[in-house]
């Protein structure tokens, strides 16, 4: 019997915790109780930004981490964070998994990449109404990540970085005029009272994933290794992400039910100006990957990814 410690950095009420519990239960059952999974939530074992290294060093057997917390370290997977890459996170997670699994061996050699566990594409939520890009000019928005911040700056907004616990205070006290989050998080973080305008344009997905410590994996019996392999598949990427994404999507309906909320939907034919503002980020990504992996490396990677996403019906 082996115990696998699994660490993440959000409170137990968060959907990430539910996803980890679902995954852990399935592993325990599939191994006939041979692998016990002990989940440590809420940074009990380490800071959010250290989770990749915690998995790599064997502080934990497995864990959930966000690659975007270490810009520049995993240049290829930064593609997944680019605005307007995918419309559907669950399908997108499966496609990304198929695309990235091989590349992860090179880009994340210290861990065993396991699966993507991310959320429904995030939207812009504001205090004042936003119908066009020009409405965003000068608005102070708390971005979900650095790359979202760069995109907001390209739109003419002012990205104001606030730590997660400061986000709510920042909104309540008017330090920021809006945030980027998926739907239900707005309600869950208590932001729905202030942020009553929403731009329904699915534009970003953070790159959050599970990793497994290699030594932990090697020390397992062949049968148990297979159990882990079976739980680190594109299908599991889709399943875990779908659970979170569905929960987030329910938030849209809930906001409409609460009343007093205005949701401005950007129709597919009106998306061009929004998408155009992200082109610089795509170029920056390509330049970065080319610099690390040789000229001309980025182009085919991106084409391949976009083709796979379109084929699966999750492309933009």
């Amino acid at each position: 019997e082996t115990t696998m410690t699994f660490s993440h950095f959000v409170p137990t009420g968060h959907r990430v915790h539910a996803g980890a519990e679902m995954w852990a239960k399935s592993i325990e059952e599939a191994s006939g109780g041979d692998i016990k999974v002990r989940i440590f939530p809420a940074q009990q074992l380490g800071k959010a930004a250290d989770h990749y290294d915690m998995i790599a060093s064997g502080q934990v057997g497995a864990g959930w981490f966000v690659s975007g917390y270490s810009p520049g370290r995993f240049p290829i997977i930064e593609a997944g964070e680019l605005p307007f890459l995918m419309t559907d996170a669950a399908t997108g997670a499966r496609v990304l998994h198929e695309w990235y699994a091989e590349k992860a061996r090179e880009e994340m050699p210290e861990i065993r990449f396991c699966l993507f566990a991310t959320h429904d594409p995030g939207r812009i939520h504001t205090r004042a109404k936003v119908e066009t890009i020009s409405d965003l000019k000068g608005m102070k928005i708390r971005p979900a990540s650095a790359s979202v911040g760069n995109y907001l700056a390209a739109l003419g907004a002012i990205p104001v970085k606030l730590a997660a616990p400061e986000a709510r205070q920042g909104v309540e006290r008017g330090v920021v005029d809006g945030v980027t989050f998926p739907w239900n998080t707005i309600i869950n973080f208590g932001l729905a009272e202030d942020l009553v305008h929403h731009v329904d344009l699915p534009f970003y997905v953070p790159m959050a994933m599970y990793g497994v410590n290699p030594a932990f994996y090697e020390n397992l019996s062949p049968e148990n290794r297979k159990v882990i392999d079976d739980h680190c598949t594109p299908e599991w990427s889709e399943r875990i992400t779908s659970d979170w994404a569905t929960w987030e999507q329910d938030g849209r309906q809930e906001l409409e039910d609460i009343g007093g909320h205005t949701i401005v939907t950007v129709a597919p034919e009106d998306r061009a100006p929004w998408v155009e503002k992200a082109q610089g980020l795509y170029a920056d990504w390509a330049a970065q990957v080319d610099q690390r992996y040789g000229d001309g490396a980025a182009g085919p990677m991106m084409e391949d990814l976009q083709a796979r996403l379109s084929q699966a019906g999750a492309g933009f």
Partner: peptide, 16 residues
């Protein structure tokens, strides 16, 4: 947990 992981904690916890 083990000496190796403990060294990693000692490496990251102070600066973090």
């Amino acid at each position: 947990v083990g000496f190796g992981p403990a060294m990693s904690v000692l490496a990251s916890a102070p600066i973090r």
